[in-house]
């Protein structure tokens, strides 16, 4: 078990740096540069050259990358050109907003997905099953940004129950409750698609387990139906669901880009979109590194949880 964990943790390193190298290369290959983005109409060749010198962008790309890598190892992520502040301050602030959004969405996804999946499996071919299956299919098919817009039109503009965008009121007192109030629509919009995936998988996994002999044995022994489903069937079915939850975290982080944009949520997805637009390489690199590390770690955690739940995996 320990060597499995160590091996998996070490794999994180080449994956994340592979990602940053790829992103760096892409930022160089796409047209446009930060100096020109900053200068706008005044991007005369002289002005661009001066600014590139000041931003240390006139050095060869490989030197830029190696310098960046060396600095990152010592915890220095550089300074954002477009925001004139340390990259680390910005990405940590933005990432915490994304974690709050994606974390809440994950909670909704898992709760909703598991409950729907279990109910559908237990009530197979009954109306509950059909309702949840159709619901999951609809959830799966709707793009989250579209759902986000519909939510705004109905619940924010129409009914006025929730704010249309942002994370806190623009002024006046704000606390956890006001943040939660702003969180409901974006988190739900983000969660519904992923919940559809979890629900379908839970349902099929539960159905498979419920057909197993030991479940029939348990039922024959006179154990209550509730206990059979939760203790015997669900525990085994969830082994298959856990790694997919890990994958869904990636989906939630990716989907956050759209949802954050539509809801004006101050998260890292929206930050990356803007930073790519302004060719702010350091900010893009820092943000991508953080998201990639998180994604890899969460998948690692999901695999470890699965390994803990299922002894067969530990041997592999």
């Amino acid at each position: 078990m320990r060597s499995y964990v160590v091996r998996r943790v070490l794999q994180v390193i080449p994956v994340t740096f592979g990602v940053t190298l790829l992103v760096f290369a892409m930022m160089l290959l796409i047209p446009g540069d930060p100096a020109r983005a900053i200068l706008g109409s005044y991007a005369t060749p002289e002005n661009v050259a001066t600014l590139e010198r000041q931003l240390a962008l006139d050095r060869p790309p490989h030197i830029q990358y190696v310098t960046w890598l060396g600095n990152v190892v010592t915890g220095d992520f550089g300074r954002s050109y477009s925001l004139n502040r340390p990259v680390l301050d910005e990405i940590l602030e933005r990432f915490s907003a994304t974690l709050l959004l994606a974390g809440t969405a994950l909670l909704i996804t898992v709760l909703l997905g598991l409950i729907a999946g279990i109910v559908a499996a237990v009530k197979q071919h009954r109306w509950q099953d059909r309702a949840f299956t159709v619901g999951a299919l609809v959830g799966l098919s709707i793009p989250s940004f579209w759902l986000a817009m519909i939510f705004i039109v109905v619940f924010a503009l129409g009914l006025g129950w929730f704010p249309t965008s942002g994370m806190r009121p623009a002024f006046g007192p704000s606390g956890p409750l006001t943040v939660l109030h702003h969180l409901v629509l974006p988190a739900t919009a983000l969660a519904l698609v992923a919940a559809g995936v979890i629900a379908r998988l839970t349902r099929s996994s539960m159905l498979e387990v419920l057909r197993q002999d030991y479940v029939r044995t348990a039922t024959a022994k006179g154990i209550t139906r509730r206990s059979v489903i939760m203790r015997h069937a669900f525990r085994n079915a969830v082994v298959n669901v856990v790694p997919v939850i890990g994958v869904q975290v990636g989906f939630l982080l990716g989907g956050a880009v759209y949802v954050e944009t539509v809801f004006g949520w101050p998260g890292i997805g929206r930050m990356l979109v803007t930073a790519i637009g302004t060719r702010d390489i350091l900010l893009v690199q820092g943000g991508v590194l953080l998201v990639a590390v998180t994604y890899v770690l969460i998948n690692l955690a999901a695999d470890l949880v699965q390994a803990a739940l299922d002894p067969r995996i530990r041997l592999g």
Partner: peptide
């Protein structure tokens, strides 16, 4: 509020 439609909604 970067998204123009979100601005109008606000």
């Amino acid at each position: 509020i970067t998204e123009s439609q979100t601005r109008v909604n606000e």
